[in-house]
């Protein structure tokens, strides 16, 4: 699904060149739920933005769903992003001017679906996150947990192959975080491929596999069934 090999990403300022990612290799298979952890500044978000085609990379290879994305132009990248990727942000990033259904409508508009198809998908996505009754509410009228559910509905509505989430529970209290996490697990069970960045070890263990990044490099890519078992044993 997502395969990066020896990928590097350098940020250049006038004085220094910092490598946010160095010799970075990762392989996320179709249907996997991967948690990405690591200290602050280690390159987790950078990895996600490159995976989501929001940024270009400096060196190495990146294959998304079997296609090499190096050298694609803005149009092609936007189209891939629109069709294959769903983003979930820590700060929800709903558009304040638009009500719930219009927020979910955004990626569908760019996709070029007709009105009936868009309505169907909006209803389905809202049903999925349990917010059908709130379709005409504005983001400011919803709780943080509800906002994040809307964001998830928006990410889902276009039926993407890959969900990328950057600390989706970072701005939520434990109760709401658990709800969002349950929803992600449910989506995963239904077949979604999910890559989730998190600081929270408790959430990380609920993923199938944890990838630890330190200083722009994957430290240990081995599956860690032992941890999962330990967590399950502990609960």
């Amino acid at each position: 699904m997502l395969k990066m090999t020896h990928l590097s990403k350098a940020y250049r300022t006038e004085v220094v060149e910092t490598f946010a990612l160095r010799d970075f290799s990762i392989h996320v298979r179709e249907g996997e739920f991967v948690a990405v952890t690591g200290p602050s500044g280690s390159g987790k978000t950078t990895f996600l933005t490159i995976a989501g085609l929001l940024e270009e990379f400096s060196g190495g290879e990146y294959q998304l769903d079997g296609a090499n994305v190096r050298g694609l132009n803005d149009n092609q990248r936007s189209k891939l992003r629109n069709e294959k990727i769903g983003f979930i942000f820590q700060a929800f990033n709903l558009i304040a001017d638009l009500n719930v259904q219009d927020n979910i409508d955004v990626p569908l508009r760019y996709r070029g679906f007709n009105g009936a198809e868009r309505r169907r998908r909006i209803q389905e996505a809202l049903g999925r996150v349990g917010l059908s009754a709130r379709s005409r509410h504005y983001p400011a009228e919803l709780s943080g947990g509800q906002q994040q559910r809307v964001a998830i509905a928006r990410a889902l509505a276009g039926s993407p192959r890959l969900l990328l989430a950057d600390e989706p529970t970072g701005n939520l209290d434990t109760q709401m975080a658990r709800g969002v996490m349950d929803l992600l697990e449910e989506l995963h069970r239904d077949g979604a491929t999910i890559v989730m960045v998190t600081h929270d070890p408790e959430l990380a263990v609920r993923a199938q596999r944890e990838v630890h990044i330190v200083d722009g490099q994957v430290v240990d890519m081995a599956p860690q069934p032992r941890l999962v078992e330990a967590a399950q044993a502990g609960s």
Binding site: D74, R81, E83, F87, N93, D97, V106, Y110, R154
Partner: peptide, 16 residues
């Protein structure tokens, strides 16, 4: 800029 960034992330190309 925030809203525009979000739209881009959701698949809007520059032309849009």
């Amino acid at each position: 800029a925030g809203d525009i960034g979000v739209r881009r992330a959701l698949g809007a190309n520059r032309r849009a």
